[in-house]
């Protein structure tokens, strides 16, 4: 249970996951933010005005999946590193998952990294398709990983270091 061990439950996640139809259409932000805390940088970060917080700053964010284009600006803006972008639209069996990352070394595009789930358990080795810096001031990296579609809602972190060069 989230409040006991930090791992969101299936029920927690069900409340924030976009529909399968929306997921199949293209990248979309998923806010794994389940607690009413006074925080709203994600709302200001979204150029599509797709993230709302009602009635006030203490509410949890709500993503309008029809407005969200999966641009990932909220991923780096979130102080809690709680926003991920998932793209299930590719025809093959691979999905793209973008995670925030704040460790060194940062893996490079093309390298293979060991993916972890929300409990920190290893999920396999996945290719980094993009590694984008959040900039000098923000300092959060956005890593996009290519994972099997069935793991798109599992992989949420990577093991630091030990990266392998891709084939």
């Amino acid at each position: 249970m989230l409040i006991k061990d930090g791992i969101p439950t299936k029920e927690d996640l069900a409340a924030v996951l976009p529909s399968e139809e929306r997921l199949a259409k293209g990248p979309v932000a998923i806010t794994e933010c389940f607690q009413n805390i006074a925080c709203n940088p994600c709302v200001a970060a979204c150029p599509q005005h797709a993230i709302s917080m009602e009635p006030d700053i203490n509410a949890t964010p709500k993503v309008d999946p029809d407005k969200c284009i999966g641009c990932r600006l909220c991923v780096k803006a979130c102080p809690g590193l709680a926003i991920f972008v998932v793209d299930m639209s590719r025809p093959e069996d691979k999905a793209l998952v973008t995670i925030p990352f704040e460790f060194l070394p940062v893996p490079q595009k093309g390298q293979l990294v060991c993916g972890l789930n929300r409990a920190g358990e290893e999920q396999g080795w996945f290719k980094v398709t993009q590694a984008v810096s959040g900039g000098k001031k923000n300092m959060t990296w956005m890593l996009t990983l290519e994972v099997p579609k069935e793991l798109a809602m599992e992989v949420r972190n990577i093991k630091v270091g030990g990266y392998r060069d891709g084939e």
């Binding site: 989230l2 061990d5 607690q35 805390i37 809690g80 929300r118 920190g120």
Partner: peptide, 23 residues
């Protein structure tokens, strides 16, 4: 305490890096 007192997003960040939080 029986529950995590800090922001749960901080707890989740640690947990997905493999650190157990033992309440």
């Amino acid at each position: 305490a029986p529950n995590i007192g800090g922001f749960l997003v901080h707890a989740s960040k640690l947990r997905r890096a493999g650190v157990p939080i033992c309440t």
